[in-house]
């Protein structure tokens, strides 16, 4: 399945990488933006999902919550030396419990292209369009 068919894509940014996603619920969109972030590093389908990590985030609004979620994953990837291929997010107001499944980075199998340094607030948006949710975020690589 293509990235677009899975509800996420990358948009062009001169220096870095733009992540975009849409979905029926806010939780779906957060999961798909996270997959798009893995897609900036490697093909998410190459990542085995045999280790589970849970993170808790909160923020004053839903856009900052998206950045918190992505940055929590950046931290877990960096300190555990892992990549994540599957996500599950439960959102309650401006709080979130997220679960990520993945494995240790294998340079031979994943050929990681870049390291995500952090998620930025530039062009950041989370909003409803028609019956679905859409989100955009630029990550610094």
């Amino acid at each position: 399945m293509s990235a677009q068919a899975n509800g996420w894509s990358h948009f062009a940014h001169e220096a870095d990488i733009g992540l975009a996603a849409s979905g029926p619920s806010l939780g779906d969109v957060f999961e798909r933006v996270a997959t798009a972030m893995t897609g900036a590093i490697t093909d998410p389908e190459l990542v085995r999902t045999n280790e589970k990590v849970t993170v808790h985030c909160e923020a004053p609004d839903i856009e900052l919550l998206l950045v918190e979620w992505l940055n929590a994953l950046v931290f877990e990837m960096a300190t555990r030396g892992m990549l994540f291929g599957r996500f599950e997010v439960r959102i309650d107001g401006c709080r979130l419990v997220g679960t990520a499944w993945g494995e240790k980075i294998s340079r031979e199998r994943h050929h990681p292209a870049v390291e995500v340094k952090g998620a930025t607030y530039t062009g950041l948006s989370v909003h409803r369009r028609g019956g679905s949710w859409v989100a955009r975020c630029v990550v610094d690589v």
Binding site: A59, A78, K117, A119
Partner: peptide
Amino acid sequence: GLGHQIGTEFLRDMAIEDA
């Protein structure tokens, strides 16, 4: 990673404080 994390944390704190 140290610089990336400092940038991440203070960007958030400053954005919240500015608001």
